[in-house]
Design a protein around this nucleic acid. Structure first.
Lengths: 345, 345
DNA sequence: TGTTAGCACTCACCCCAGGAGAGTGCTAAA
DNA sequence: TTTAGCACTCTCCTGGGGTGAGTGCTAACA
């Protein structure tokens, strides 16, 4: 059933008001504060209908109404108007990208920080995922007799490197043969397909084909070069404490204990890689402790591959339109910057 | 003035009790719970003396006593008995060091985690500081026409690396000449003496001595290889919320906002590098927001150089003896492990 | 028929008073 | 010097009354 224009209008006003005040909103407040031209009584009737339809909830009889999850969903999907960024905000974001020689990790960490200060919520940023990139080139540089530097270049232009222990008995010549072989064998594979099974296979092939290679070739397996767990950067975790819905220490405790579980967060953000913008409201997040929270995520990419996620977590009562604009703008900037630096094909 | 044995005994009991209960402790409680052989009235008199001497405080007349900062200090320096670790705890710590091929960053991150779960407080760990290490060797490996990998080896055996943009006009031969020169010039210097001034000097020398070098040699300056800000790893930040003294959201907010300032924390931990064990109580920490907190730190080292700090932050009412034992044990383990891997001189 | 005014009712919140409990300081006796 | 007794203090808890915001319902109005 389609909502009448007036119901939509009232619902929108209620949700905006609640987002601002965090207090249940009553009919009188709306009639007074917004000049809609209806009396409190009329609004009361409409609110009653909206509650029946599941868009609003009443904490207890004789208190104002609060948006339900369904209400927020409808608001986000149909009612909300996106805000524009102020010049100040735009400048603030641009500043991240001002310096030329920044490392990508720093870029991302700063994005997280700015994101949280602009929105006043907590930001979560997933660093670039190499998993979906394709292997392009592997090099080994011996440092001394015991150590060597392994460098991997992906088709998205990322360079990953790691120090490994070198088996003593390999000569430089032999080492380069191994590298050459590995290159020919791996090129073009996406990194998440480099399972330990595949690496074991390759190891066997190596041992058969080159008689100087023995069981010590654990080079790639042991060095967890490919499995570098993707870091999650947090910003503004303290902002949670400003939200009136989290003035209860127990609620805070729950949320913080989840925020400490990096693997859980990175899963959450990895899932979000599939949509360029995603808004997950309340119980739609599958984590029990986050029932009172919403998560807005957007992806940044190199070429047309989404390789990382930027997100903002706040109470379900969060300022969706503001956050969506900010998150969208930052990801766009970040993507275009990454495309400048990497992927010059 | 030296305290009488009985005063010491009573002070110790009061502090232990307060550490456990977080409630002001009264004379009756002590007489009942500990069989010291004195009546409440006697204890009351002694408590009154101890208050006069500044070791105890009274939140208000007619409530029990609470240790003052001076009281804690005396307790830590003279009264406290160190606890032994249980077998379970030792196992838990050993487990960090079980796997052979772990990266040092992972080792340290895990230490932070275990530290916080064993103590139930918040742990702060400062990653290895290259600043005090001496420069030993620099290498540059060209990756392609635009990028090269710079690798620096320190005398403590650490290897740091970074990707830089290469000035186009340099041939491989010329590049190696530059590297050779840099090596001869830098060897033996500790890294914190590589100021931007010195680097500028070297750049000038290079330009004069090798005519193919021009102003594009910003290699080392731009790549902030040496200034990599030292990461601070946190563990168990949510543990703060379990402490009854921090049930007030405003206090929590203050503490968390400080914990977000990585640079401030790393300063704090860098200072602590000078003592192998340090206990900073309450206002002795120079940060206003941490007045109700204490910080216990210990350093880990390679050779005899302290290169990093491990710390635990909790309320001033924290279980000092427990924390000191745990922190001490972990740093010892970490140091010996690092000495195995690095510094094979 | 939709809208509005009026009214009784509900519920959270604040404030206050009074009682219980834990602890103290002081005095006097052992 | 230690201890028992006692009056006193202060926090914390509890319950009651008042206030204010808000609702639902009914009846009147356009």
């Amino acid at each position: 059933m389609e909502l009448s224009e007036r119901k939509k209008q009232i619902l929108q006003v209620i949700i905006s008001e609640y987002i601002k005040s965090a207090e249940p909103v009553g009919s009188r407040t709306i009639a007074r504060r917004y000049n809609l031209g209806y009396s409190p009584a009329t609004i009361r009737n409409e609110m009653s209908d909206l509650e029946e339809l599941g868009y609003l909830e009443q904490p207890h009889t004789s208190s104002g109404r609060v948006p339900s999850q369904k209400g927020y969903r409808f608001y986000v999907d149909s009612l909300m108007k996106l805000k524009n960024l102020s010049g100040k905000e735009i400048k603030r974001i641009q500043k991240i990208f001002d310096f030329k020689m920044k490392e990508i990790d720093q870029l991302i960490q700063q994005s997280a920080k700015v994101l949280s200060t602009l929105t006043h919520y907590t930001s979560l940023v997933l660093g670039p995922q190499l998993q979906k990139s394709a292997f392009e080139n592997l090099k080994i540089f011996p440092l001394d007799n015991e150590k060597a530097l392994v460098v991997i270049v992906t088709d998205t232009g990322f360079v990953e490197n790691k120090i490994i222990e070198l088996p003593q008995m390999l000569s430089t010549d032999e080492l380069f043969k191994v590298v050459e072989y590995l290159n020919s064998r791996l090129r073009g594979l996406t990194i998440d397909r480099l399972t330990s099974g595949l690496i074991k296979d390759i190891k066997m092939e190596l041992i058969h084909q080159m008689d100087f290679v023995d069981r010590y070739i654990n080079l790639l397996e042991e060095s967890s070069l490919f499995q570098r767990e993707s870091r999650v950067y947090l910003g503004g975790t303290a902002n949670i404490l400003n939200q009136p819905e989290f003035k209860d220490v127990n609620k805070i405790k729950k949320i913080f204990s989840i925020l400490e579980e990096e693997s859980l967060l990175s899963n959450l953000l990895e899932e979000a890689l599939s949509d360029s913008l995603r808004v997950v409201i309340g119980e739609e997040i599958q984590i029990e402790e986050f029932q009172d929270c919403s998560l807005i995520t957007a992806t940044y990419s190199v070429g047309d591959k989404a390789i990382g996620t930027i997100g903002v977590m706040g109470p379900t009562r969060m300022d969706y339109s503001k956050v969506i604009t900010v998150v969208g703008y930052i990801t766009k900037q970040l993507s275009s910057r990454l495309n400048e630096v990497y992927k010059k094909s």
